[in-house]
Design a protein around this nucleic acid. Structure first.
Lengths: 239, 239
DNA sequence: TCCTTTATGGTCATCTTGACCACAATTAAA
DNA sequence: TTTAATTGTGGTCAAGATGACCATAAAGGA
């Protein structure tokens, strides 16, 4: 349908940047392009915007195809409009940022075809170095379109807002109790640097428990080796 | 040219939100729409995106038409894409935020036709109440399209970043020395609340003078009534 | 001259932050 | 069974930042 684009009009697509924290690293969901342009390279999921849907609706329906899940965190990221960003024609991309728990990312990978795969993006500093979960290393040249730039933009946005908003919670398993150390793993993966455990705990409890955003549950976890951790749960906000 | 839009394609426009601080209030540049839709209502300057220009280029050329000036601060704001936001058809708007000094805003008003006029936006809380510089009060219903929402989005963005970025400087006259009280006026107008003068001075000097962003000049101002103020200048960054 | 206005510098108590330390509660190893 | 390693939890302490407030300086106007 869209393999040949008219040269006298502007097209609009939505690309979604799906991030999750797995194995201590920030990961991004990519699929391998089956056909030109950029056949064989990795790309963000995307789609042309329909005539009767907002770009946010496009992003959500695109997400719905990959996940049977509702209520994922979706936020508009940035609009990329360089004239030559798509060799097929004049295509403007409105990008969205989506945050998933490891389990949600896993089920997206399971539901997807063989084209779908995820890669850990270890982004020390600003250089985009995609470090594959199975040993594959992705550089900027392995990504289609300007998707490397989109990923960098998204990670910077995330880093900028994780410690004064609630976005970090969306990386935790929905509706499940969590240990503070798990939340700390999320922060460290996003910010790319270690944090003092005691200070992190103090800051989180002051910011979220005092404001009624999280509360302690009765149970304690027993999964790991050391002392069992107290479990907390996120209090859903009705809006 | 664009009075009739095809119903089978998506159009892209750029709308620019031009803000300045004048007379202690945050003001926005609006023009009166000469023709339907929304004829007679106030609207942000806007234009359809050309085939061979990025949206940022569109924003800058649109700005250039109104101002002979280069180097104004331009930042992408948000992309609005509600299906029914434009009665003419399917029009997606990429909005940009532009910050001007009072003098720049004045010259834009002088260069513009009679359709151009500026209004002070006094935005206590979140309710958009446009309080006219010459007594006219604008409400949400006096604005075309979803431009009230764009203005609100821009002001919130500005408030969110003014005290941890350099954006506040762009409201001051370019290349000119300024007194700290002028910068304080800018902050108070943007944030909509008064600030303790002494604490403001301490914070600004710690944040900007210590990092080499501003420096004191030799001269002192003599314009006003009280004690003359020390003048500072912004040190341009080469990037 | 005295009052008003604006600018500038300072105090002081409180809150926040970063770097540590000590101990608790569990599992693994010796 | 003791000991060590591991993870979680609470606390201290000094340095820095913040908010409320006061005092003084330098100008113009009455």
């Amino acid at each position: 349908m869209h393999e040949q684009l008219n040269t006298d009009q502007v097209y609009v697509t939505v690309d979604i940047l799906i991030l999750a924290v797995r194995e201590g690293r920030l990961q991004v969901l990519l699929s391998r392009r089956p056909s030109p342009p950029y056949a064989g390279l990795w790309a963000l999921p995307g789609r042309f915007v329909g005539l009767s849907e907002s770009t946010e609706a496009t992003a959500r329906s695109l997400l719905q195809e990959m996940l049977p899940l509702r209520g994922a965190y979706v936020e508009q990221l940035y609009t990329f409009s360089d004239v030559s960003r798509d060799p097929r024609g004049r295509v403007i991309s409105v990008s969205y940022l989506v945050l998933l728990s490891p389990q949600q990312l896993q089920s997206a990978l399971a539901a997807g075809s063989g084209r779908l795969r995820s890669f850990a993006a270890s982004c020390a500093g600003l250089s985009l170095a995609l470090d594959g979960g199975d040993g594959v290393i992705l550089g900027e040249g392995d990504l289609a379109f300007d998707h490397g730039r989109i990923i960098r933009t998204g990670i910077l946005r995330l880093r900028g807002k994780i410690d004064y908003t609630d976005v970090g919670f969306h990386f935790l398993a929905d509706q499940q109790a969590f240990a503070l150390s798990e939340l700390q793993d999320v922060f460290e993966a996003v910010l790319g640097k270690p944090t003092d455990t005691s200070n992190f705990r103090r800051a989180v409890l002051a910011r979220y428990e005092a404001t009624g955003r999280i509360e302690q549950t009765e149970k304690a976890e027993k999964r790991r080796r050391g002392r069992p951790a107290a479990l907390y749960r996120v209090i859903p906000r009705d809006e």
